[in-house]
Each structure stands twice: as C-alpha cells, then as structure tokens.
Nucleic acid binder design. Structure first.
Lengths: 151, 151
DNA sequence: TATTGTTATACTCTATAACTATA
DNA sequence: TATAGTTATAGAGTATAACAATA
C-alpha cells in the first residue's frame, strides 16, 4: 500500500511549497513581474548569463514559452539576448544593469522577509531538512528517468 | 545576513517540488486534465464535496479562476455543482461518479509510481522530513499573516 | 453591509508542432 | 540529421474589478 508511504510526505511537501509561494507572491508582484518572469530573473541573477536551453531546464519553462517570457523581460529592459560566440544556433540571455538592479532590490529584501520563518528552526533542523529534501529530489528524478526510458 | 539561512533550504524545497511536479506531470496528462484541474479532482476526492470558498483556499486558486476550472470539469462530466442547503449564497462542488472513477483510476497508480522514490528513504527519515516541512510551513504561514496585517 | 460566486476584460502562460538557421 | 531558438495557434490560467443574489 503505497498510499500510507507517499501521501503524508507529499502533502506536507505541497503545503510547504504553497506556503512559500503564498508568502512570496505579494513581494514578487511589487516588481510588476509574473512568477515565471521572476523565476527567470532570479535564475539569471549573479550569473554572466546562460543559453535558452540552460535557462529552460533550470526553470522548467519549455522553449516556446521561454521565448515569450524573455521577450517581455526584454521589452521592460530587464534582460537582453546576446549571440553565443561558440555556437551560432545558440542565444545567451543575461540581465541588463536595470535587471540586475531589480534582482538586488527585490531578492535580498525578499529573503530578509522570509528569514524569520527559517530562524524558528534550529540550524541542525535546517540542515536535516535540506539533506532529506535533496535525497527525495534525487530519488524522484530517478523515477522521471525511469518513465522516460519506458515511454 | 539572511541569505545564507534562507537560500539553501528554499533552493532544495523548490527543486524537490519541481522534481515531484515533473515526475507527476506525465501521469496527470494521461487523464487529459491540466494541473489545476487535477488539483481540484484530488482535493475533492474522498470528500462529500465542499464550497467554492473551501476549494479555493485549499488549492490556492482564486474564485474567478475557480469558476472556469470547475466549468471545464463539469463540461467533462467529472464534477457537479449543488446548491448549499444551509446558505443560498454558497455552491458546493463534488465529483460525479465518473469524476470519482478518474480519481481512483489515476491517483492510486500515481502513488504507486512515486512510491519507490519514497521507499529509498528510511521511515524515520520520512517522518523527520514530514515534521520539518510542517514546521517550516507553519512558520511561513505566520509570515504571510504578518504581511496581511501590515498591508 | 458583508459574503459567495459569476461575469468581463486583458494579459500571460502552456502544449504542440511546423519552421529557420546553424552544426 | 540533429540541435537551438522562433513562430503560430488554440486553449487554459491569472489578476482585477464590477456585478447579482443572499445573509
């Protein structure tokens, strides 16, 4: 009976992630960005930029959608496309100085807002949580691979 | 410096939830349902039905959107609206027998598919993860409340 | 007056597949 | 032939706000 094994953890995982989303949403919206756009800005933050392919695999946004999301960020002057020196097929995306400013203005205060929630847990608890989440993630990724192999 | 406290756990939480989503998605799509529709079906499963208000707060789907999602489930014959006996303003939503069949046909196999990932972790690890996730969620919910109180 | 759900609008995201250009 | 990204299309979700019916 897999139900008793899977459901309690999944429920808490989903509810915890929902709570994180809910606590984050209003902060995110102050930037005028949608959640996918914010996701891209945070993923590009503190990097020299990356290809659409890499950006897509990190954000789980498929390529067709990513074109539109990056278009809108480019329209707002927050991101820019650069030709990839090594491969003419590939395009790099990076934050503009204005995009970097938004990243810094929003991300750190956002973390500071969330911090009290994390400080309620002792450091060893956070380490434990981090370790277990990583363990579960790796196991889940193996399941996805398994599915891919079977069709 | 809140960054060192918040980022590692948030990153693992987000990546773990992404991995869960990715492993779930293809199973979900076999039903022909979108993720929000599946969310509603799972939330209604094994219940006698609930109001739009309750359904919305559990799924984090806002009321205007929920009307449309339930409309589509109703069109497919998976859910139905019932007038609330006690309160004329309220409408209850519940699964039809066909909706219940979809819930049973999809949900249990879905759990069985995910189970091996959870079984890699010892039971005490799952309990620990569950406990820590709940602890973090409750702390995050307090942050949201705090935000609501401040505007 | 406050609450529940619907409607209307405009925008964004999404899946899918055909397409261009490079490799 | 395969890969990276764009374009096109149709459908779905989203925020927001105005609305009707009921409490």
């Amino acid at each position: 009976m897999s139900r008793a094994i899977v459901v309690p953890v999944i429920r808490e995982l989903a509810r915890c992630y929902q709570a994180f989303q809910r606590a984050s949403d209003s902060h995110i919206r102050r930037t005028g960005l949608t959640p996918p756009q914010f996701d891209v800005v945070v993923t590009l933050g503190d990097t020299p930029g990356m290809s659409f392919k890499d950006l897509g695999s990190r954000t789980l946004i498929t390529k067709g959608t990513l074109t539109g999301v990056v278009d809108r960020l480019e329209t707002r002057g927050l991101a820019e496309r650069i030709a990839c020196p090594g491969d003419g097929r590939s395009t790099l995306v990076r934050l503009t100085p204005e995009g970097d400013r938004v990243f810094r203005d929003v991300f750190e205060p956002h973390l500071a807002f969330l911090a009290p929630a994390f400080e309620e847990m002792p450091e060893c608890g956070r380490k434990e949580l981090e370790k277990r989440l990583k363990q579960l993630r790796e196991a889940l990724e193996k399941r996805s691979d398994e599915l891919g192999r079977q069709g």
